[in-house]
């Protein structure tokens, strides 16, 4: 009897601890997002998006160059990274299906996707910034693209694997060549998954700072030239948050708020869509 009692108490004790850890995790999430929303939302106004940087101490500036720069750098990364990831994933799931090489590349791609992003930055610095002789928005995009490719590759591989093999055979049986089967049948069947994969890849890189520190660098002026250094939202947040001025801190919170809301929404919406589409 006492033994049973002891076991029951132990049971409740550990289940409580496990529940507490779960709430600890939730607590951190709520605390971080809460602070971000309180500090960030209160600093949001239209000037943030239309005004250029103000000189230190003069307050009242906006983050327009950073927003535009972020958009340019991320879109360029998208244009480079998504097609490569998509095609690479297609090779692994289609032409290379079941081959040892494809499996190896798929594994290597997972590893490549987890390489510290700052290392990617140093690599691009050595290969692009050094050779061209100057920092540029384009080199930043390239660094982000390298981070993006493995993400898109993996999603493509998974999504194409979900398309029933028989569907491809049905197309082959009508005399369709493989490339038409891929572009007309397989991609179309997996379109929702591929689209959300692309969105998730963007969400993955949109908040990256480290790989931009010594590639796209920074720019105190508004610039649209991708061969020159360019301000990005994330590097600007870093610079402003580490700076000594209160106005800067406010702007950093506001920028962080915008970028986090964007990333969380993109993540949540794509997860919701994928869950609904592939529930069965």
């Amino acid at each position: 009897m006492t033994n049973l009692k002891k076991r029951k108490i132990t049971n409740i004790f550990f289940l409580t601890i496990s529940t507490l850890t779960a709430f600890l995790g939730l607590f951190w999430l709520v605390m971080i997002l809460g602070d971000l929303f309180i500090q960030g939302a209160s600093s949001i106004n239209w000037k943030l998006f239309v005004d250029d940087f103000a000189p230190p101490g003069f307050g009242d500036g906006g983050l327009r160059p950073a927003f535009v720069g972020q958009l340019i750098i991320v879109s360029t990364a998208f244009i480079i990274g998504i097609p490569i990831g998509l095609l690479g994933g297609t090779f692994i799931a289609e032409y290379g299906r079941n081959s040892k090489t494809a499996k190896l590349i798929s594994t290597l791609s997972d590893l490549a996707g987890s390489i510290p992003s700052i290392v990617v930055g140093t690599f691009i610095y050595a290969v692009i910034v050094r050779t061209t002789g100057h920092f540029s928005a384009f080199s930043g995009s390239l660094a982000l693209a390298l981070i993006m490719i493995p993400v898109m590759l993996k999603t493509t591989e998974n999504m194409l694997n979900l398309v029933p093999w028989q569907l491809r055979e049905a197309a082959f049986a009508l005399g369709a060549p493989y490339y038409k089967v891929i572009f007309q049948i397989v991609y179309k069947s997996a379109s929702v998954g591929l689209l959300t994969g692309a969105v998730l890849s963007v969400a993955r890189i949109a908040g990256e700072t480290a790989p931009l520190l010594f590639t796209s660098l920074n720019n105190t002026f508004f610039s649209l030239n991708i061969t020159k250094p360019m301000a990005s939202l994330t590097v600007t947040i870093y610079r402003y948050a580490m700076g000594p001025y209160n106005d800067w801190h406010k702007l950093a919170w506001a920028g962080s708020f915008v970028i986090t809301v964007f990333i969380l929404l993109a993540t949540l919406i794509s997860r919701f869509i994928v869950n609904r589409r592939y529930k069965n």
């Binding site: 995790g25 951190w28 999430l29 971080i32 997002l33 971000l36 969400a203 949109a206 908040g207 990256e208 700072t209 480290a210 994330t234 947040i237 870093y238 948050a241 950093a252 919170w253 962080s256 970028i259 986090t260 990333i263 969380l264 993540t267």
Partner: peptide, 11 residues
């Protein structure tokens, strides 16, 4: 928690 950018954690 994993999708919050690391710069937000830092700040």
């Amino acid at each position: 928690l994993a999708s919050i950018p690391s710069i937000i954690y830092g700040m």
